[in-house]
Amino acid sequence: MGTITYLTDSPEAVVRRYADMVYKLAYARTGSRADADDVFQEVFLRYMEKAPSFSSEEHRKSWLIRVTVNCAKTLKASYWNRNTEGLSENIVFDSPEQYDLQRELMRLEPKYREVVHLFYYEDMSCEQIASVLGISGAAVRTRLSRARSALKKWMKEEDYA
């Protein structure tokens, strides 16, 4: 647990501090900027709606991660999402390798992508991820391992490694 700070911050300060984290995770989970936009707004509105109290800044961060994942799940499970096809998005990649990586990531199931994101981008440990996602540490390790194997396999198939 981190130091107890910021706990009385205004909603605006909270959004500004966690905007990137929430958005990136939402994007990693949904694979779509449009969906990430929706999740982003939903998460912070829930923050207002629920007005949760936190014992630490780490607690607040965990709450936001958890709610982001939940909102992304809900969005993907909605009738609208199950019956519509998203428009292709114009994302500019710096290199062909990045494009390949993104494409292969999107072939992973969302539950694997979220673990990959939290581990690689948020630098969270398996135990922290387990805690936030409500799954066991072993499950996190399994998902990470499967994600890595799948990516490796696909990238080899594409002659990219």
């Binding site: 905007a19 990136k24 707004q41 710096d94 390798e97 981008y121």
Partner: peptide
């Protein structure tokens, strides 16, 4: 590689402001 891929992914300032306004 993953970090490089995700770094540019950020909410637009318009989205951020709109969200703050809604809050």
């Amino acid at each position: 590689e993953y970090k490089e891929l995700m770094d540019p992914i950020s909410p637009s300032s318009e989205l951020t402001e709109k969200t703050i306004r809604k809050m």
